[in-house]
């Protein structure tokens, strides 16, 4: 592990918060994407079944 000196807390927390926020954004994107996709597949399937 490298030595960050006296500013370790500042550097680590900004990297941490950034990664956390980005992870949250990516997770939200993927979750909503999957949910909408599933919903659409359901609807499409119903539509083809009914003709």
């Amino acid at each position: 592990m490298i030595d960050l000196g006296k500013y370790a807390a500042a550097v680590l927390s900004s990297y941490g918060i950034t990664l956390l926020l980005l992870a949250g954004l990516i997770a939200l994107t993927l979750i909503r994407g999957a949910r909408v996709r599933r919903h659409l597949d359901q609807l499409e399937a119903r539509r083809t079944r009914n003709g």
């Binding site: 954004l25 994107t29 993927l30 909503r32 994407g33 909408v36 919903h39 659409l40 609807l43 499409e44």
Partner: peptide, 23 residues
């Protein structure tokens, strides 16, 4: 990447809306 992913989701969501209205 994120914008493309999200736009795809929005396009799908729009289609879902259209299908529901049609039903």
């Amino acid at each position: 990447t994120l914008v493309l992913l999200r736009t795809r989701t929005e396009v799908r969501a729009r289609r879902v809306r259209a299908l529901i209205t049609r039903e």
